Simulated scan of single mutants.
Amino acid sequence: MPFEESGSRSNLYYSFSVAGVHVVMLGSYTDFDAGSAQYKWLHADLAKVDRARTPWIVALLHAPWYNTDSAHQGEGESMRKAMEGLLYQARVDIVFAGHVHAYERFGDQCGPVHMTVGDGGNREGFALTFEKPSPPISQFQEASFGHGRLRVVNETHAHWSWHRNDDPDSTIRDEVWLESLAASRACGVSLQAHAPSTSDEL
């Protein structure tokens, strides 16, 4: 965990850049309020991001900030209230979380897309009970074993797919084209039906 290289004092939160993506790892189980070392580090780290060099920003954490499943309900809320503003200001594109043993995708026109991918394998069983009716921000949910794939196509577009592993053949159950918030004129996520040009892949 390259925490020292990113200016962090803890291996519970750090960042690195690879292939046009600035990846921020956040610690759900360490201090995160406005006076904390993690908050101050995140503020400084995001301020240094050059979107010309890394046009995508992806954050990862454990306890999801958005969750319509009854399992672990509200456990990420305090961290969301403390840190979400920093991610919006920096125009972070995607937030990945785990913890809840299910898959769920949340969309927000002017903020990060939130993906809960906690369904990769566990001993406790699936988190089966979702809130009904689902709020509009929850755009897909399923409690079954699976995995996700993020393909950064170029500086403006990426493709996300979630694959259900319970089937004999590979099954894509959810997929969406994403537009980088750094490049989006509409301030949001583009759910396009067609693929962008791959002429300048990262």
Rank of each mutant, 00 (worst) to 15 (best):
M1C: 09
P2V: 07
E4L: 11
S6G: 10
R9K: 12
S10C: 05
N11T: 00
Y13D: 08
Y13H: 14
Y14V: 01
Y14R: 02
S15A: 15
F16M: 00
S17G: 07
A19Y: 14
H22Y: 13
V23R: 00
V23L: 01
L26E: 02
G27I: 04
S28Y: 06
S28E: 07
S28R: 07
S28C: 08
T30R: 03
D31Q: 11
D31A: 14
A34P: 00
A34N: 10
G35C: 06
S36H: 07
A37F: 12
Q38Y: 04
W41K: 12
H43V: 00
A44C: 00
A44F: 02
L46C: 05
D50I: 05
A52Y: 00
R53F: 03
T54K: 01
V58I: 15
A59K: 03
L60R: 10
L60M: 15
H62D: 04
W65M: 14
N67P: 01
N67R: 06
D69K: 04
D69P: 00
S70I: 14
S70Y: 11
S70L: 10
A71D: 11
M79A: 14
R80F: 06
A82C: 01
E84S: 14
E84F: 15
G85R: 10
Y88T: 07
Y88L: 14
Q89V: 02
A90M: 09
R91F: 03
V92H: 04
D93K: 09
V95C: 09
G98Y: 04
G98F: 08
V100P: 05
V100H: 08
H101Y: 07
Y103W: 03
E104W: 13
E104Q: 15
G107Q: 05
D108S: 14
Q109S: 08
Q109L: 02
C110Q: 13
G111V: 04
G111W: 02
M115Q: 04
V117G: 00
V117N: 07
V117T: 08
V117L: 10
G118K: 09
G121S: 01
G121V: 10
N122F: 02
N122P: 00
R123H: 12
G125Q: 07
T129K: 15
F130G: 06
F130V: 11
K132V: 08
S134V: 07
P135T: 04
S138G: 08
F140P: 02
F140Y: 15
F140E: 09
E142V: 14
E142K: 15
G146W: 12
H147M: 03
L150H: 01
V152Q: 08
N154W: 10
T156G: 06
H157E: 13
W162S: 11
W162I: 09
W162R: 03
H163W: 15
D166N: 01
P168Q: 07
S170V: 01
T171I: 00
D174W: 00
D174P: 00
V176I: 15
V176T: 13
L178K: 07
L181H: 13
L181N: 08
A182Q: 13
A183I: 00
A183V: 01
A186V: 00
A186K: 04
A186T: 10
C187R: 05
G188P: 11
S190I: 07
A193H: 12
A195D: 09
S199N: 14
D200T: 14
L202Q: 06
